[in-house]
């Protein structure tokens, strides 16, 4: 089975959901014209990244009755969507979240588990942390979603892999940093290395959408990619450029790679559990 994935690498307007929604709908339309089956938007694609005190006024309750979500849910009748937004739960806690919409329904919401609160990052000050990671079924098979810092911790992609995800969907608003004599920033190189490693180690597809543009002095480097189960690059959007890129992946590659390299078959989950319990029991 071959599917076409669209990566939307674009700039957002900070805290302006109406304007960002308009860009989403335009990208969705363009992706549909290019026969894409799924379109992936970056982290906080509906709001922009460094919201600070704009968090509460940018938050959405994902539901048919929400005027913003209603339009996206409607748009998902023809194409699957992964969108980034501020999720306000029933108890009014605010999460960085990704929603997967398909066939006019909200199929899954992932609340970002790891909120970087160090160095240039201050997410833990403004957001609640998610507390679960689950793979879920789609018409393309089982997938898992993670948001930026979530995949700087190897445990979450690992858990999604064990939970049955053959396609990992990553979104981020990753600020560029680390200028040296190399032609790419060290942040870009590092993220691409890890994404390639996950694809190879889990014999999975890994699709990553990262935004571009600037917020104050922060640049966002883009460089969105898809890697296949061999760890080979399927597509990369150039750094710093706004683009909608559609690439085809062949899900039968999972069969071929895992026939050659049975890492999933040989993975010893009970050993992991036993050793984790031992480690957790140690003082």
């Amino acid at each position: 089975m071959k599917i076409r994935i669209a990566l939307a690498q674009f700039n957002t307007k900070l805290g302006d959901i109406d304007s960002n929604l308009k860009v989403h709908l335009e990208h969705i339309e363009e992706a549909k014209q290019q026969d894409a089956d799924l379109i992936i938007f970056p982290e906080l694609s509906l709001t922009g990244y460094a919201l600070q005190d704009l968090v509460a006024s940018s938050a959405l309750m994902p539901h048919q009755n929400d005027p913003i979500f209603n339009k996206l849910i409607h748009a998902s009748e023809d194409i699957d969507l992964m969108v980034g937004f501020v999720h306000e739960d029933r108890r009014h806690r605010f999460y960085i979240a990704a929603a997967y919409l398909s066939a006019g329904e909200i199929r899954h919401i992932h609340n970002k588990v790891y909120l970087p609160t160090y160095g240039m990052f201050d997410e833990g000050r403004f957001f609640a942390a998610g507390n679960s990671v689950r793979a879920f079924d789609t018409r393309f098979g089982r997938v898992g979603m993670l948001i930026c810092e979530d995949f700087w911790h190897a445990s979450l992609p690992y858990l999604l892999w064990l939970d049955g995800a053959d396609i990992l969907l990553f979104s981020s608003s990753s600020p560029g940093r680390g200028l040296s004599e190399d032609p790419r920033l060290s942040s870009s190189v590092w993220v691409e290395h890890t994404n390639r490693a996950y694809a190879g180690l889990f014999t999975n597809f890994v699709a990553h959408a990262n935004r571009v543009g600037y917020e104050d002095g922060l640049n966002f480097w883009g460089g969105s990619t898809i890697f296949d189960p061999n760890g080979d690059l399927v597509v990369r959007i150039p750094d710093f450029e706004s683009a909608l890129t559609v690439a085809e992946i062949d899900l039968n590659q999972l069969h071929r790679t895992r026939a050659r390299l049975p890492l999933l078959r040989d993975e010893r989950k009970t050993l992991v559990l036993r050793e984790l319990e031992r480690i957790l029991g140690e003082k």
């Binding site: 560029g176 200028l179 040296s180 004599e181 190399d182 032609p183 790419r184 920033l185 600037y214 002095g217 640049n219 710093f240």
Partner: peptide, 17 residues
């Protein structure tokens, strides 16, 4: 200690900024 920068990349980021 190497303070060499890729000037092309710096120019791209800074003109965009």
């Amino acid at each position: 200690i190497d303070l060499t920068i890729n000037t092309q990349l710096a120019e791209k980021i800074l003109t965009g900024f």
